[in-house]
Simulated scan of single mutants.
Amino acid sequence: MAALSLAAMAGIDATVGPAFAAGAKDWPTRPVKLIVPAKPGGGTDAVVRILATKLETVAGRPFAIVNQPTGGGSVAAETVRAARPDGNTLLFYHSGLLSSYHSGVYSHNPATEFTTIAMMPVGGSQALAVGPDVGIDSVEDLVTKAKAAPDSVTMGVQLKGASHFMAGLLMRDSGAPFRLVEAGSDADKFTALQGGNIDAAIVNTSGALQYAEAGKLKILGTVTGRPERDPGAPDYPSMVELGFKNTMYGFDFMVLGPKGLDPGLTDRINAVFGEVINDPAIQEQLAKMNLPISFMDRDASVERIVASEKTIGEVAAEIGLKN
Rank of each mutant, 00 (worst) to 15 (best):
E113Y: 07
R30Q: 06
A287N: 10
T191E: 13
A281E: 11
V223Y: 03
F244Y: 15
G23L: 08
I198H: 06
K245Q: 15
V75K: 06
I65G: 03
T224G: 09
S107A: 11
A77Y: 08
P237M: 12
P121T: 07
S152G: 01
T89I: 00
V272W: 00
A200S: 07
L4Q: 02
P62H: 06
S99L: 07
P37K: 06
A21T: 00
I202T: 13
V80C: 01
K259N: 04
V272E: 02
K39P: 09
R49L: 09
E241K: 15
V32I: 02
A52G: 05
F251A: 13
G243E: 04
D137Y: 07
Y101F: 01
K160R: 15
M166H: 04
N109W: 00
P234W: 08
T44Q: 10
V36C: 01
S206E: 04
M248N: 12
T57G: 13
H94I: 04
A38W: 04
G17E: 07
T222R: 03
G104W: 07
P85V: 01
E140C: 08
F63T: 03
K288M: 12
G175I: 04
G257A: 11
G175N: 09
G175V: 10
T205Y: 08
S125T: 05
T205H: 01
T222N: 01
S125N: 00
K218F: 05
D13C: 08
N246V: 11
V80H: 00
G221W: 13
M120W: 03
A162W: 10
T29P: 05
M248F: 15
D26K: 15
D26N: 13
F63K: 02
G17A: 11
M166C: 05
N197L: 15
G215N: 07
G207F: 00
D267V: 00
M254W: 09
T191A: 14
V16T: 09
I198T: 05
N197G: 14
D188W: 12
G41Q: 07
S294L: 09
L51D: 07
G73C: 01
S125H: 07
A146M: 04
E213L: 14
R226Y: 14
L98W: 06
V255L: 15
G168S: 05
K310D: 11
T247P: 08
R268A: 10
E309D: 15
S174T: 05
S99K: 09
M120V: 09
L265G: 11
D199G: 04
G60W: 13
P231I: 10
V181I: 13
G274W: 09
P227F: 10
T57H: 12
A316P: 00
L6V: 13
L159G: 05
G124Q: 10
M120K: 01
Y211P: 02
R226P: 08
E56K: 11
L170Y: 05
M9C: 12
L261G: 10
R84L: 03
L142N: 10
G104C: 06
G207L: 09
L193K: 02
V276R: 11
K216L: 10
T247M: 09
A146T: 11
M166I: 12
I12V: 15
K259D: 03
V58Q: 00
V306W: 04
L217G: 01
G225T: 03
A212S: 14
G196V: 05
A208N: 02
L90W: 06
G168D: 01
E241I: 15
E284L: 11
S5W: 11
L4N: 04
